[in-house]
Structure formats: structure tokens, C-alpha cells
């Protein structure tokens, strides 16, 4: 299991770096700091407590992909960061997420999550088709449980979390990769493939 998680962290690290590079380009090469992705397996109760402030308002761009494996990826910004980013992109100042701001954020999320998928696709040697992203501005807890329920998570869940921030703009957020259970079968095939290659 450990090698699968390590492999998963590696995938996530490269995925997140692709995603934030594309964000940086949209921000005129602002420097983005990334944490090392944490891949964790949470029990259902741990997953229920995973979000520290469930009432906090966040903006979430979300994709559920059904392909060689099924997984959810999400780009989550606290409201303040989302407003900063929306203002930067649209030159429109507002104390709430406007329709224009929302479509700009959806597009940014689409590009970032698309880059994340491109990295996963390359690394795993699997063709992954992009899917239509969705956006929600709501309570963090409501978004989190909706993603878990969408994935049909009932016992444990694997969460790969990368935090990013930049000082040039008051902006920070999270990228989540939440694979369904069949991802492990997929990984087992891939990891044993890699180990075979290495032992040659």
C-alpha cells in the first residue's frame, strides 16, 4: 500500500505542478509556492472531519472523470482568494462572485484541472479524456460531502491534497485528487509494471 501511496503522491506532485504552471502563466508568471502533496487514506469519520471550517464560503471547480479509472479532481479557493483572482482576470471589483467572475474562475479551473489530467495521462500512459467542469460557490462542507457522495464513497477515501499560494497576489488554494476505489487496481497494474521495468 505504501508504494501505491508514494506513486500516487508522485503523480499528484507532477499533476499539481502542471496545474499551477498554467495558473502562473495566466497571472503573468507570478511565482507560486506548492506544498508537497499529501496523500492520505481517510476512514469515513476522518473524511467527515477533514474540512476544518465547513461553514467557510469557497469557490470550487470540479471534474468527475470516468475513464481508465474513475476519479474526482477539484480546485478550491477560499472566497477572498477567489475574489482576488476574479478581479485580476476581469478587472471588475466586487464583494461577491459575479456572473462574469464565475465564468472566469470556471475557465481558470478548467485549464488547471485539464493540465493536471494531462500530467496524469502522460505519467500513467493512459489516455484520459477531459470532461466538462462544474463550479459552485458555497459552504466548504457542503461541497466536500457532495463530492464524496458523487464518488459513492462509503468506507474509506484516498485524498491527495496540494496547497498552493503566491505572495504577489493574495491568493492561495487547494487542488484535490480523489480517486475511486478502482484506481487501486489501475495503480497495481501500473506499479507492478514499473517495478518489473526497474528490476530488469
Amino acid at each position: 500500500m505504501k508504494e501505491k501511496l508514494d506513486f500516487l503522491s508522485e503523480l499528484g506532485s507532477i499533476g499539481a505542478s502542471y496545474a499551477t504552471t498554467s495558473l502562473s502563466k495566466m497571472l503573468h508568471d507570478a511565482k507560486l509556492k506548492l506544498t508537497v502533496p499529501q496523500s492520505r487514506i481517510l476512514s469515513f469519520s476522518e473524511a467527515a472531519n477533514f474540512i476544518p471550517n465547513p461553514e467557510e464560503i469557497v469557490v470550487c471547480v470540479y471534474m468527475r472523470m470516468i475513464d481508465a479509472f474513475e476519479a474526482n479532481i477539484a480546485f478550491i479557493l477560499p472566497l477572498k482568494s477567489a475574489l482576488t483572482l476574479a478581479e485580476y482576470l476581469t478587472s471588475e471589483k466586487s464583494d461577491h462572485i459575479t456572473e462574469l467572475g464565475q465564468s472566469a474562475l470556471l475557465e481558470v479551473g478548467n485549464i488547471m484541472l485539464g493540465s493536471y489530467l494531462t500530467a496524469l495521462s502522460m505519467l500513467s500512459g493512459t489516455k484520459l479524456n477531459p470532461v466538462v467542469p462544474a463550479i459552485a460557490v458555497d459552504m466548504n462542507g457542503a461541497i466536500w460531502e457532495s463530492i464524496l457522495a458523487d464518488a459513492g464513497i462509503t468506507d474509506f477515501v484516498t485524498v491527495l491534497d496540494t496547497h498552493f499560494s503566491t505572495d504577489q497576489l493574495e491568493l492561495s488554494g487547494h487542488l484535490f485528487f480523489i480517486p475511486d476505489h478502482d484506481f487501486y487496481q489501475f495503480l497495481t497494474r501500473k506499479v507492478s509494471g514499473f517495478l518489473l521495468e526497474e528490476s530488469k
Binding site: A47, A48, E55, G141, A142, I143, W144, E145, A149
Partner: peptide
């Protein structure tokens, strides 16, 4: 009352559940 849990009170107090999305 967190996701998947049940809370009970008698007489006074308030039972709160936060972040109901698709949950009921």
C-alpha cells in the same frame, strides 16, 4: 452532528448540522 452521525437532546440546547450539500 457530523456527516453520518445522529445527535439527541432533551429539554434544551440546539442540534446543528453544517454543510448539507447532497446530504439530508
Amino acid at each position: 452532528v457530523n456527516m453520518g452521525q445522529i445527535g439527541v437532546l432533551r429539554g434544551k440546547g440546539v442540534l446543528v448540522t453544517v454543510g448539507l450539500g447532497s446530504c439530508v
